[in-house]
Amino acid sequence: MGLIQRILEERGISTVSISLNLAITKKVKPPRVLYPGFSLGHPLGRAHDREIQLRVLQDALGLLEMDLQPGEVVIRSY
């Protein structure tokens, strides 16, 4: 996923992604990343929990407007 993200960014599309594992993210170095501490298969938190899904998506998109360094990972707890 990080490889796809990097290609989009190289071609002029701003991107933000979720990380489910910091060790993998550290190697791939995608442009902007939110690490919410969820397990594999659960990037938006929990099934049918619209409130947490909305918060995670909104927070992640919010990273696009923050003054971040390329490759910076923002860690939040939900």
Partner: peptide
């Protein structure tokens, strides 16, 4: 395949993308 998707997004006028791993 990833460059094809990038070109499609640009063609769609997309400014930003949100990506999820699993």
């Amino acid at each position: 395949t990833a460059p094809e998707v990038a070109a499609a997004l640009i063609g769609d006028g997309v400014d930003a993308a949100f990506l999820t791993p699993t």
